[in-house]
């Protein structure tokens, strides 16, 4: 049996004195696509942010092992260099910093960490052109400031473009489907599928089963009030789409 890429054990996290994650256990294996669903405010983005190393949240209990390393001891940049990638639910606009400059710096940092030579300007450019095709990003975006003035859908595609450039081993997509039109959803899903490898795992946070028709999950978890209250095969997503969350909420509350 392969080792999990990511192991989360009894994770508790809070902001101020409000506990948001209340004991999460989760294993993610190489090559796996794991969907996380759950009602608004249940803690999905918080889990993603804690994994990425956001300092606003305090981890009060539990541990996270990523690639055999204690993730909680690593800075956000060290996590990225170790191969963790978060596609943000709300990508940040960075005026004055071009996508090309930003990605070149990021990619070469990652390469340095992996013991690879930095790419020169030519190699980098051709890689950008190649990967941009994957999510139908126009080369004119390279010189534009990161996310500045991008439409909602462009921002989401830009996240997947960055994923394609940085080649992480674990990619967390936080509602990458929200705000996408039907064609863009297809483009993003095709992009993600093209990026699937036996080593690379995906955590797909979504509210809609539609995305999961394209990116087929190996396992679906339902997060509610900071806990995983149900896990199942891909059919669970269809069931949730049809029936909503009330039925599992009730079971969970009955058990609590």
């Amino acid at each position: 049996m392969t080792e999990p890429l990511l192991q989360i054990r009894n994770l508790h996290a809070s902001i101020g004195n409000k506990e948001i994650l209340r004991g999460i256990d989760l294993d993610i294996f190489p090559g796996q696509v794991c969907a996380i669903m759950g009602p608004n405010g249940s803690g999905k983005s918080t889990l993603a942010a804690v994994l990425a190393g956001r300092e606003d949240y305090q981890v009060t209990e539990g541990e996270i092992i990523f690639n055999g390393k204690n993730l909680l001891e690593l800075s956000p940049e060290e996590r990225a260099r170790e191969g963790l990638f978060l596609a943000f639910q709300y990508p940040v606009e960075i005026p004055g910093v071009s996508t090309a400059t930003f990605l070149k710096t990021a990619l070469n940092e990652l390469r340095k960490h992996r013991g690879l030579e930095p790419l020169d300007a030519m190699e980098f450019m051709s890689l950008m052109h190649e990967r941009a095709k994957l999510v139908h990003i126009e080369p004119s975006f390279f010189s534009r400031a990161v996310n500045e003035g991008f439409s909602g859908g462009e921002k989401k595609r830009n996240e997947i473009f960055q994923l394609a450039m940085l080649e992480p081993t674990l990619a967390i997509l936080d509602e990458t489907d929200s705000g996408l039109d039907i064609d863009a959803l297809r483009i993003v899903a095709d992009g993600v599928n093209a990026l699937r490898t036996p080593e690379r795992a995906f955590v797909v946070i979504t509210h809609y089963q539609r995305l999961l028709n394209y990116i087929v999950p190996d396992i679906v978890h339902v997060l509610y009030r900071g806990r995983i209250i149900k896990s199942g095969a891909k059919e669970l997503a269809t069931e949730l789409e049809a029936q909503g969350y009330d039925w599992i909420k009730e079971t969970a509350e009955a058990q609590a």
Partner: peptide, 16 residues
């Protein structure tokens, strides 16, 4: 701070 975190989450050090 949001922009700093975004850049760090892509592998840039805080200084960078």
């Amino acid at each position: 701070g949001e922009a700093l975190f975004y850049l760090q989450a892509r592998g840039l050090s805080k200084k960078q």
